[in-house]
Write a protein that binds this DNA or RNA. Structure first.
Length: 162
DNA sequence: ACCAACCCATCCT
DNA sequence: AGGATGGGTTGGT
């Protein structure tokens, strides 16, 4: 699939709206929203190798939901949030956990996990969509209903396709 | 610096 | 329906 289709898919599921790139820091410096907006609109190609790498990996993921991300992230957050986000990245593709289950393994409370997920600066790549509530889908992108939840549902089904 | 009060992508009774 | 829960934020002193 060419890159343009990927960006269509991204636009379709409002990825930009949930601020994908917010807070990503790397050895190449901070990736800004501008970088990604420009990528989306095809105004200019990715600005540097890091952005290009992310775009490539997103392309592969859109093609194949089983694809894992290998991106060195340095998101900024509280120690607790960093711990939760690390744990999120350890959840394999296709696995769904509940907030309560995650809370138990991290010795904390379910709502605290939800709090940290809500603050995830790098949705999709840090796969907070794999955490769901006990008896419902739970929230996504700071919302408990609406477009963001459609994206969460899509991501989960995308990762289940064989 | 501290504390009280509130906010939540939850869960249990 | 209501209460417990834990981390974060805000606003007061």
């Amino acid at each position: 699939m060419p890159a343009s289709n990927t960006y269509c898919a991204i636009a379709k599921y409002s990825l930009a709206e949930i601020k994908l790139t917010l807070g990503i820091k790397t050895h190449l410096g901070k990736l800004t929203n501008i970088d990604f907006l420009n990528c989306n609109k095809h105004v200019i190609p990715p600005q540097n190798d890091f952005v290009k790498d992310i775009v490539d990996q997103l392309n592969r993921y859109i093609n194949d939901g089983k694809r894992e991300f290998h991106i060195a992230l340095e998101p900024s957050g509280t120690p607790f949030q960093l711990k939760v986000w690390r744990a999120l990245q350890a959840i394999p593709v296709g696995v769904k956990l509940s907030y309560g289950e995650m809370a138990k393994s991290l010795h904390t409370g379910a709502r605290a996990i939800g709090n940290a997920c809500r603050k995830n600066p790098v949705p999709i790549i840090i796969p907070c969509h794999r955490v769901i509530a006990q008896s419902s889908l739970g929230g996504y992108g700071g919302a408990t209903q609406g477009k963001n939840l459609e994206l969460k549902r899509w991501l989960l089904s995308h990762e289940c396709k064989k």
